[in-house]
Computed example of a mutant assay.
Amino acid sequence: MNRSASVLHRLSIGVVGVVLVAVAVAVILYQVSVEPVAGWISRIDTRQLTETVGKGWFGAVLALVAVLAAYWGWRLIRTTIAPHRPEQFLLDASETEGALTISLKQVAQAIEEHLATQTGLRRVRAQALDDRGQNIIRITVDARPDRSYDEIVGALAPTVEDLRTAFAGSDIHVQAFVHLDALE
């Protein structure tokens, strides 16, 4: 998972969790009359609380909080839904006069076509993904059972290293998955 998305998720869950635990502990301590918590809670002016809830601005504040919570919740959900495809990648060498872009989908297609010619690889799939804001080129290889792991990695490694060299310093990551078919 992308680090920034992961931090947002953990921070959000942590804040909500701490608030809920604090409220639960306060309710339990009040129910068993533990001081000073029971004294603090008994000093809350419920009449003032009722008057505040009845005021016109309270509904607006409550609606604003609900909208912000819904927006934040949607942002958190959106970062965890299925990855989507990135369109283009802006290269670091771009200047103000013009932008150098490449289509990651076309890079993935070229990788797939190149690796499909390798012997020992039964099926090759290369994808360009935007996984929670992280650009990834993911290569998945199914290998025939009569090939050794070293042969498979030997066919795959030069392509992976070429990609890592080409995208060095960018936010594009290269993943390679090898599925070894079972012996028949």
Rank of each mutant, 00 (worst) to 15 (best):
G56P: 13
T52D: 14
A93R: 14
S170P: 09
I137R: 00
I111V: 15
Q109P: 13
L11S: 12
Q88D: 12
V34P: 06
H9F: 05
A69P: 02
E51L: 14
R75W: 15
A60D: 06
I111F: 04
Q134T: 04
I111A: 04
L183N: 04
V67W: 07
L64E: 12
V124W: 04
R123D: 06
E184H: 02
T159R: 01
L49C: 15
T119E: 06
G14V: 07
R132T: 07
T165I: 11
V32H: 08
T119F: 09
E35W: 10
V32G: 15
A128E: 02
T80M: 06
V34F: 12
L91V: 06
R78Q: 03
R78T: 10
I172G: 01
T80E: 06
E51Y: 12
S42A: 15
S42P: 14
N135E: 02
D92A: 11
L68V: 08
E112W: 13
E87S: 08
G14W: 03
I137M: 01
D181I: 02
S33W: 14
I172C: 03
V37G: 09
R122L: 08
V153L: 08
R85M: 11
I136W: 00
A166N: 13
V61D: 04
N135C: 05
R47S: 10
V67G: 07
I41F: 11
A69R: 10
A155P: 04
Q106R: 12
I102G: 00
R144D: 04
V15R: 11
G17P: 09
G98V: 12
Q31R: 09
D142W: 06
A70H: 11
D150E: 10
D92W: 03
Q31D: 14
A99G: 09
D92C: 02
A166T: 11
L8G: 01
V124H: 04
S170D: 06
I13E: 11
R3C: 01
R85F: 11
K105A: 13
L76P: 00
L29M: 13
S103F: 14
R132Q: 08
T140V: 11
V160R: 05
P36K: 11
L91K: 03
W57K: 06
V153M: 04
L104N: 03
A22K: 10
K55E: 15
F89H: 09
G56C: 06
A116V: 05
K55M: 07
A82E: 07
G59I: 04
A5S: 12
G17W: 00
L64Y: 09
A110L: 15
S170W: 02
T140K: 01
H114E: 12
A5T: 13
I136L: 02
I44G: 14
G59R: 12
D171F: 05
Q127W: 14
L163R: 01
V141T: 05
A5F: 06
I44M: 09
A128C: 05
